[in-house]
Structure formats: structure tokens, C-alpha cells
Write a protein that binds this DNA or RNA. Structure first.
Length: 208
DNA sequence: TCATTAACACGGG
DNA sequence: CCCGTGTTAATGA
């Protein structure tokens, strides 16, 4: 809540706009693993991250997943914006990577604010560009990196985003997000351990 | 060559 | 015991 003020002012929003956002938005807490946005949920709101960490996953109709990027404090999900503006449902799901505090903003007011406030328009465009860059990074990983490099990139991204050297995930969960098999993840993690890049415990990976 | 699938043993919580 | 992990063998791209 206190964080909200900080984030809004950090974006150089007009006083009037800050007041509107505080009035119209609503606070939402989501615990780790909780779904924030999904195609079948048909959300009418976009999430602004106040604290914690969200992850954006691409999903197909057969239950396959692919991790795309994280949303950190102060960031919002541009995919949700297009999704709602175009009135389309996309196969993208936003899930809490950690317990997170969000500020949910109704879509129709986002539309209005973009037209009315220059600062908000800039905020949305910048968010767009940042997401786009992250998307390109994810695409590069898939196109150009081998699985072991992708895995290391994934671990480092997680370390950077969470600010923790410890990753509490099973090999199976990692395999799903990278859209590969657990056998491969286990084998590559074992190799990373031999190379002293990581340390492994049950349900827990430490990055060195 | 490297990924996937299935199958199995080990052992920690 | 249950489930996460490590490994192997067979098969495929």
C-alpha cells in the first residue's frame, strides 16, 4: 500500500492521476503459485506489481508451458493491456512466483487514462518496450541457446528476479517451464553441480 | 548427436 | 511410505 504511492510518484504521474489510481484500483494479495491472469479467467483488470514477483507463461492447448519473463515491483503486464484493448483472449498466464502484493486496475479506466494523461501514456509505452525486450531475450534463448545454456540463463534470471541465490523448485517444475523433460534437467543440473556452478539439495538449488 | 519416454533404485522428509 | 532425484536403455529427430 505504502509502496503504491512510491511507485506512482516514481513514474512522474500527475497528482490527479495518482489520486484516480488510488481510488479506482484495488489491492490484491496473491500467494506463490496463485494465478493472476489466465485466458479462461477473462480478467478485466491489469496487475501492477507492488511487491513480490510474477512470472508470465505461454501456454498451448495441450498443457505445454513456456516461461517467458518475470514481472517485478513497479512493472505491469503489457500483454494484459493488448489482450483487453483488443478484446482477445490470449494463451498467456500470469502466475505468482513468490507471494506478491498487487494493485489491480480496471481495463476501461486504463484506456481512458492513456488518452487523458501524458505520463500514463509514457508509462504504458515504456512498459510495452520493456516487455518486448524481455520477449526478444526469451526468443533468443529458445532459438540460439542449447538446453544447458538455456537452463543456466533460466537459473540466473530467477536469481536476479528474486534476489536470492536459493531456488526452491523441483526438476519437474523447471522442465515444464522450459518445455523439456525432467531427465534432461536432472542431467544438466548434475553437470552444473560438477562444474561448481550450483549446489543441489532436495527441492532446492543454490547458485554459486 | 542429443532429446524423449519409460522404467527402476535410492533415500530423505 | 511418497515423491524427488539420478541413471539407463531404447527409440526418434
Amino acid at each position: 500500500m505504502d509502496n503504491l504511492e512510491e511507485i506512482l510518484e516514481g513514474n512522474g504521474f500527475e497528482k490527479e492521476l495518482v489520486a484516480e489510481i488510488k481510488n479506482i484500483g484495488r489491492s490484491k494479495r496473491v500467494s506463490s503459485g496463485g494465478v493472476v491472469v489466465s485466458a479462461d479467467l477473462g480478467s478485466e483488470e491489469i496487475p501492477l506489481v507492488l511487491s513480490g514477483l510474477l512470472k508470465l507463461l505461454r501456454k498451448d492447448d495441450q498443457g505445454n508451458e513456456l516461461f517467458l519473463y518475470h514481472l517485478q515491483s513497479g512493472e505491469t503486464c503489457a500483454m494484459s493491456i493488448t489482450c483487453c484493448l483488443e478484446g482477445k483472449t490470449q494463451d498467456i498466464t500470469v502466475v505468482a512466483e513468490e507471494d506478491s502484493q498487487l494493485w489491480m486496475i480496471p481495463m476501461h479506466t486504463v484506456d481512458r487514462w492513456i488518452q487523458r494523461y501524458k505520463s500514463f501514456r509514457k508509462f504504458v509505452f515504456r512498459s510495452y518496450q520493456e516487455r518486448f525486450d524481455e520477449l526478444l531475450g526469451a526468443l533468443d534463448g529458445i532459438a540460439f541457446l542449447k538446453m544447458d545454456e538455456r537452463l543456466m540463463k533460466y537459473l540466473l534470471d530467477l536469481k536476479q528476479a528474486s534476489g536470492s541465490f536459493v531456488i526452491k523448485k523441483t526438476h519437474q517444475e523447471i522442465a515444464k517451464e522450459l518445455n523439456t523433460s525432467r531427465v534432461v534437467v536432472s542431467r544438466l543440473l548434475k553437470q552444473l553441480e560438477r562444474d561448481d556452478k550450483i549446489e543441489q539439495h532436495r527441492n532446492r538449488i543454490e547458485i554459486l
